[in-house]
Design a protein around this nucleic acid. Structure first.
Ligand code: MN
Ligand code: MN
Ligand code: MN
Ligand code: MN
Lengths: 150, 150
DNA sequence: TCCGAAAGTTAGCCTAGGCTAAGAAGTGAT
DNA sequence: ATCACTTCTTAGCCTAGGCTAACTTTCGGA
């Protein structure tokens, strides 16, 4: 006689608050992750990472890039040589590498569960910032199992 | 002899820019989605949705809730009767319902791929805002197949 | 060498989403 | 009816991340 799908009770307020707080934290680091990842990609592909190119690829004005780079510099992630491009610090390189690994894992995973490549690329750009270590490990396991099992 | 995992070339700048732009768009709507979802949950569970409770559950100050509710009202999603709680407009109810369905689908999916329930709950809170319709459909298919196949 | 185009910065503006502190306004129990 | 408590709003502040317009600096080709 049950018509509705069993309304789950609300989680304890503190738990829920903690989740939202971690959420906000992830949002705050997302921009930095995308920038350093892009900078690393440009360095690899072009040998240099120019602010103009970042602006073009991020779909954002050069002024915005200047401001954001300022924050990344403040946070010890990048160094700049004006008219000579951007460079990653050790911390920046670490973050870039982690971001890239995560990004590609999420893309592979989304494709593996049946998403088309282009949409996977699109969605991964956001999902990557919200997948915990545990989630990434689950994605890895899933990919490994699928490869093994066939 | 290949040592590195084949460096994928950078996507066309315009494509990449479009992805980031959609990303930013999703970020902008995320707060509204979480609020209306919570309001709907509170209405169901408590019969009313008070700003205080939203503040507690969002882990945010009451002043922040007032401001955010103001935006939701401006955008035609909620109505307020001071000291009598919050109510959803038709548009708000629609958004809440969609948000809730998405949220629960993402949780179920994450659990299905091997994530523990608590982490699934946590990660879903962010991932839900970045999963496209196509991704959600892929998640549904995956769950259906798994249930069928065993 | 010079000079226009490209690259980068600066100034000034905006919104979202946070915060604290203080005050106003209901509510409910005595 | 009163009054303490709770709820809500207001004021004033902050940062991130956007924007345009105008300016400065560098680069490279003629
Ligand atoms: Mn991203
Ligand atoms: Mn990425
Ligand atoms: Mn959410
Ligand atoms: Mn949600």
């Amino acid at each position: 006689m049950r018509r509705t799908p069993a309304p789950r009770p609300l989680p304890p307020a503190e738990d829920q608050a903690a989740r939202f707080a971690r959420q906000r934290e992830a949002d705050r680091t997302a921009t930095a992750e995308d920038y350093v990842e892009l900078i690393a990609d440009l360095l690899r592909a072009d040998g240099e990472a120019r602010a103009v190119d970042i602006a073009r690829r991020m779909g954002v004005s050069q002024a915005t890039v200047t401001a954001t780079i300022g924050r990344l510099q403040r946070d010890g992630l990048v160094e700049t040589k004006p008219y000579r491009g951007l460079f990653l610090t050790d911390a920046g390189r670490d973050m870039a590498q982690a971001a890239k690994a995560r990004h590609e894992l999420v893309v592979r995973f989304l494709i593996a569960v049946g998403l088309d490549a282009e949409t996977a690329e699109q969605d991964a750009e956001g999902i990557e910032h919200h997948a915990s270590e545990a989630a990434l490990q689950a994605f890895e396991r899933f990919l490994a199992a699928r490869k093994a099992g066939g």
